[in-house]
Design a binder for these strands. Structure first.
Lengths: 351, 351
DNA sequence: TCCGCCGACCGAAACGTTTCTACGAGGTGC
DNA sequence: GCACCTCGTAGAAACGTTTCGGTCGGCGGA
């Protein structure tokens, strides 16, 4: 085709792709400078950087062809200390592998929103996509990544759904409902819930599901039976101790995750209570080992691996430039009945 | 024809670095072709490829600048299904992070030696280094990585130490010794061991430590009390069932990891045996949750996070071109006494 | 006030890589 | 035998990145 036709004006010789050079011209800088900005390199004044970033944002630069992005998907964890995380990694890995991609893992040590340094490093690595687990990116971070055509998928997002980003989660509300209903059907009326911190919307959803079940059964939700604790064994232990120390203790406890349930087990042991004879317990997650503890834990299964896999698939879709059908995907939770639940001891048949 | 710098005579304009373009001219091909050869891309005839490779060899091309290795350390797991793995990841991550590096995670799904595809992918990603967990790379793979100056550190190597590569491990022999000695001191004489597969030298070492303790105490090692099972709950369960079904069952069982110990717990429950009253159990690893199971597990602690961190440090050393002091680092194991061990029921004071 | 040094900042040039087009050999159908 | 297609191969051009030298403003010393 018209190859030798001069580009006198820098003329529309080709399809007018948005290239670094073009951005540079628009911003009144040179291509290297734009490159530095894009890759988070240093040596660019803040004002210049901002100007360039503005142009990039408005013009929606996306990397030429598919050449550059490293064959990597980054997973950002808030904490990396439970089998929970591992299952997700496995799911992601499973999807990535056949495509010749790899997953990187980062731990934010409890921060919900990644810090500045993180953003810079991600840009420098130029991954194909980012999966944020229980993360809450700022709008600015979303913008920066979006302008580089790095798709972001949030898994089990905390904070508000918002940000129009894609996300994957489980049916938490339903899980809470099913768990509480199960206990109600066994005849329990004093059902406590030890929930996780409010920041996690998954926890709020679980609580709402629990509430809905009790409401539907006409059982009042007693505020004192609603506790909040960190999503660890110690959290469940502390609150369970307190709950079981009350004059009129609950006959069943539903926890926001399996680790808290382990804490409840421990508290029960301390008090000499037998599970499930004296106390029923329902957890959440279905970590691999809870079917082996004594007694095997009844819990709400989250398909963690599948959630990871789904998130990865979403990232791949987005990275390929396709717009996936759904912005939010929720996978089903299922109640796994084992042996930590039974009808309450004092058969609740008083008048 | 390129720039004005007529290199007709090779007019030493700069230091005449060896560049792709120069190689290309010498080989009578274009720069893209040379690039393809260097990066193992397809689309180059074998004859051409050989000619170019010959030139490269004689002229000793080396990549321009030092820009190349991506800021990534790859961790290769044999299996990614236990907290075990997660602890290691955390340790590695902890060390990498301050250097602005990230860890990638790959699962080999049980294979001890990574396959061909893996090697190719690693080369394509050009990481700063590789940490193989329970892995056994072939000599060829070692060679390929070495020639690209990608250091390899093996963590808890399986197969023979060999291969002169750096490695990190725990004092497994000592762990086995301490575990068995602990049981002996409690008065046990019939001490079974459920070990992991022979391929893992860490398992062999644990067994040897166990043997050494028994020998030292003058207690004969009964072959029938020595079992081998996969390093999972089911493995421990199956062998413990069998052991406890014998006419003269052991009074204590030492397992090669905590998951197997969980299986022993389950088998004991099935038989109606109480731990530790009727059966003592000692595990290996000290996974986070075993202090919360009923009863809390006595186990040999491996400093998994520290092992990961050490491996990462080794990789960094090697990547920086420094030769580390030691090729093999072994971290201490410690016995964590909890409540799964007690003196044998039939106090062993017969004459 | 002037000079010289220094650091921050930016761009020209060179480089390696990818994409896309061009060319030719071998095969196929008519 | 000819047109046509296909596949493998090579190169031209364009692109993004890095290196390295130049420029400019500020600051301390004379």
């Amino acid at each position: 085709m018209t190859s030798p036709d001069a580009d006198t004006t820098g003329g529309a010789r080709r399809r007018r792709e948005i290239t670094v050079a073009r951005i540079a011209r628009l911003a009144g800088v040179s291509a290297p400078t734009v490159s530095k900005v894009i890759n988070g390199r240093s040596g660019v004044a803040t004002s210049t950087r901002q100007r360039v970033e503005e142009i990039i944002r408005t013009h929606g630069y996306q990397r030429h062809g598919r050449a550059e992005p490293t064959p990597i998907v980054e997973i950002v964890f808030q904490a990396l200390d439970s089998l929970w995380a591992l299952e997700i990694i496995r799911g992601v890995e499973q999807v990535l592998r056949p495509h010749g991609l790899t997953a990187t893992v980062t731990e934010m040590h409890g921060q919900l929103t990644p810090d500045k340094a993180w953003a810079r490093q991600v840009l420098a690595r130029r991954p194909m996509g980012v999966i944020g687990v229980s993360a809450q990116l700022t709008a600015a971070q979303h913008g920066e990544l979006a302008s580089r055509a790095i798709p972001v998928v949030t898994l089990d997002p905390s904070g508000e759904p918002a940000h129009r980003g894609a996300s994957v989660g489980a049916m938490n509300w339903n899980g809470g409902l099913v768990a509480a209903r199960h206990l109600l059907e066994l005849g329990h009326r004093r059902i406590a819930m030890i929930n996780g911190p409010d920041e996690f919307i998954c926890c709020r959803a679980r609580l709402d599901g629990y509430r809905a079940a009790l409401d539907a059964a006409g059982v009042p939700v007693e505020p004192d039976l609603l506790r909040v604790a960190p999503l660890y064994v110690e959290g469940g232990l502390a609150q369970a101790r307190d709950l079981l120390g009350q004059p009129d203790p609950p006959t069943a406890i539903f926890t926001a995750n399996d680790l808290q349930a382990l804490g409840v087990y421990e508290a029960a042991r301390e008090k000499g209570l037998r599970i499930p004879a004296d106390l029923s317990v329902v957890g959440f997650d279905d970590l691999a080992f809870v079917r082996w503890i004594g007694p095997p834990l009844t819990t709400v299964r989250q398909p963690l691996m599948k959630m990871g896999a789904t998130a990865a698939e979403l990232v791949l879709e987005l990275a390929a430039g396709r717009q996936p059908g759904h912005d939010r995907i929720e996978l089903a939770t299922t109640l796994i009945e084992r042996q930590s639940t039974a009808p309450p001891r004092t058969a609740d048949s008083r008048p």
